[in-house]
Design a protein around this nucleic acid. Structure first.
Lengths: 217, 217
DNA sequence: ACACTATTCCAAGGATGATTGGAGAACTAT
DNA sequence: ATAGTTCTCCAATCATCCTTGGAATAGTGT
């Protein structure tokens, strides 16, 4: 039956990646990091974790080589080690959503009532024909780290104050981080409550990158 | 910043799948299950785990809905819940191999000296032209659960005794479970030590299925 | 009913992981 | 040098997971 110790050692190595993905907090951090590089402090704040806790989780991700760091002065920026990591993260979420009924429940509880969605192809077509205004409702720094060409940065917390910027008779398409990001849902709800015609991209920037569609910086 | 509790709940749900993949033993079980349905007893023996330990790990996989069970008399058969699970498993191993130097070390220690490999396309071409004998060196029950069309079942422990079955002047291509299965490596080493011309499929049945190539039963 | 097989459940120990505050390290600025 | 910023390391506590043997459950065969 082969060398059992060597086989165990190999599979334990594979499990290092699994272990890195075995915490909701770390998946949340990965979700943020997938949007562009971020400092420990920024990640801790965005994820609602204590600084040392966030740092510990980031070390775990780093030891699994899923993320890499870059130092700039006293700050340390974390970013994904590669697109394969984003693909693995996205596939994990898809499998979880397809297999676990509880994921669907939790998703609906978090994202709220479902709003009209458009596919990536529809979005591209609407941008080309000028039939829609595409807005990126993520925080400004994530927009700066890469966004859909032609999209305007309108962070969700500025949206209510900036309605005048786009014509009232034109459709708005909002997008954010990915399939499980609440920002575009909130944006569409806010816009439709204002009488606008608004939809959201069915997924988000994560899936856009993985589809190898053009990204503007 | 949205509903933190609901967000945590959602990501904790995603993490259930990560947790299921966070143990070398469970990944080893998944690797076996991916070859076709197996009973608890068979899985425990193949993986070198105690029966209750194997059962406990299988329950963990089942609670993450990565595997499903079927009862037949007193036996319970475990099988993968779907191809998406196989794809996730394969991607996890690929990412681990690409990212973690220790995986490469452990892989080389387990698989032994590298032997000549052929791609899936080359194998298909050789089968069509009749230029090679393709042998499936997995245990017979895995062959029975699905194999490459045209392949002959020659479990590794029978290989030495069955050399006479295939012509000495024809090339042999061996394959087994997947990219990290030792059986085809051992087969090629055994055959070349006997003066045969032998290569192995670069990956194995797992990747063959994922590529949606034809499977015979 | 009874014995037998295959598997799961339960309980307890040890091992591993998460979280926290405080100290230390790396770097910048004065 | 000194003080300030950002992050990591350390140590302690608590929670969770792994493993194991023994008991319980589900089903088969006599």
């Amino acid at each position: 039956m082969g060398d059992r110790d060597a086989k165990n050692a190999l599979f334990d190595q594979f499990a290092r990646v699994g272990k890195a993905l075995a915490s909701g907090k770390r998946l949340e951090l990965l979700d943020l990091i997938a949007q562009g590089e971020r400092t420990v402090d920024a990640l801790a704040k965005s994820s609602g974790l204590g600084l040392t806790t966030a740092s510990a989780h980031l070390q775990t991700l780093k030891q699994a080589n899923l993320v890499i760091t870059r130092r700039e002065g006293t700050k340390i920026f974390y970013r994904l080690a590669g697109d394969d990591v984003a693909a693995l993260f996205a596939l994990l979420r898809t499998v979880a959503d397809d297999r676990l009924p509880d994921v669907r429940t939790a998703r609906e509880a978090y994202l709220g009532d479902d709003t009209d969605a458009v596919s990536r192809e529809e979005l591209l077509e609407r941008v080309r024909s000028g039939r829609a205004t595409v807005i990126d409702v993520r925080p400004a720094e994530e927009y700066a780290a890469g966004h859909i060409p032609g999209a305007v940065s309108v962070p969700l917390d500025e949206l209510a104050d900036r309605l005048a910027e786009f014509p009232a008779d034109q459709e708005v398409v909002a997008y954010c981080r990915g399939a499980y990001c609440v920002l575009s849902h909130d944006a569409v709800r806010l816009l439709t409550a204002q009488g606008r015609t608004a939809r959201r991209l069915a997924d988000g920037m994560l899936e856009w990158r993985l589809a190898e569609l053009p990204v503007a910086v």
